[in-house]
């Protein structure tokens, strides 16, 4: 079996193509089991005011498990807010990685493309390795890549919906035109959708809710790990062309006596 190339985001080599989120887990013990079962090497966190009760618990957990921390700018609605949050994250976590999220409204949680591109340009200039959560829009993806982002991370469907990949053709177009890694981020509901993202040629999948809110998060995390590996292998193997009519897979029958 050929060994797979590592995922490279800017200067960071990431040993797993399944990037996890930590949001939605009932407690840190459930989260720990899920992260271990997922095999992830990179996991998102949000930046919020420190709370005396929880302290730096999530961070301590990720460090103990040897998982690299990916701070996000969740909750930010403008480029200015996102840039400020990214700078705080860099100070707190001593990483140049940032998952850039600039959300337009609470109902859809869709990215605001204008603020997103503005924030991406500022953060690239400031030396960040910028991983933008973006719409499944090939034009915006191209502009984000042009701005110097280290990856583009199009959504499959809105955050937390579990509706899977609503426009696979857009994802395929983004994959086709993009030289930096493409990470399918948001909307995954179950393992087949994670495999589909990889079969479409995405370089990685980022998901949280599908695992953390599953009936059995640890088991679903394991399923996602297998799905990402299977989809990656299938993409690399080259699927057969689709045909209209059947093609026999056994030799023609022998002539009768």
């Amino acid at each position: 079996m050929p060994t797979d190339d590592p995922l490279v985001l800017g200067g960071h080599k990431i040993a797993s193509r399944l990037i996890m989120g930590t949001g939605g887990a009932g407690n840190l013990e459930i989260l720990e089991r899920a992260l271990l079962a997922s095999g992830t090497a990179l996991t998102t966190v949000a930046m919020r005011r420190i709370d005396a009760a929880s302290g730096t618990g999530v961070l301590d957990l990720l460090r103990r498990l040897g998982i690299e921390v990916l701070p996000n700018t969740a909750g930010c609605r403008t480029a200015a807010e996102a840039v400020f949050t990214a700078r705080l994250a860099r100070e707190a976590l001593e990483t140049d990685l940032v998952k850039l999220e600039v959300i337009a409204d609470e109902r859809t949680l869709l990215p605001d493309p204008i603020e997103l591109l503005d924030a991406a340009e500022q953060l690239v200039d400031d030396g960040f390795t910028v991983l933008p959560y973006t719409n499944d829009d090939p034009v915006l993806a191209r502009k984000l890549e042009g701005a110097g982002c280290a990856a583009v991370m199009p959504l499959g469907s809105p955050i937390g919906t579990g509706l899977g990949i609503r426009n696979p053709h857009n994802i395929a177009m983004i994959v086709e035109q993009t030289r930096v890694p493409v990470v399918l981020d948001a909307g995954i509901g179950t393992a087949s959708e994670a495999a589909q993202a990889m079969e479409l040629g995405c370089d990685a999948v980022l998901l949280a809710t599908a695992v953390t809110r599953a009936g059995d998060p640890e088991r679903m995390a394991h399923a996602m790990r297998l799905a990402v590996e299977a989809g990656r292998a299938a993409h690399g193997a080259g699927r057969i062309p689709r045909r209209y009519w059947a093609t026999a897979s056994s030799p023609d029958p022998d002539p009768g006596p």
Partner: peptide, 10 residues
Amino acid sequence: IEVLTAVQGG
């Protein structure tokens, strides 16, 4: 003064 840390999210 704002003091922030990493919490579960994303």
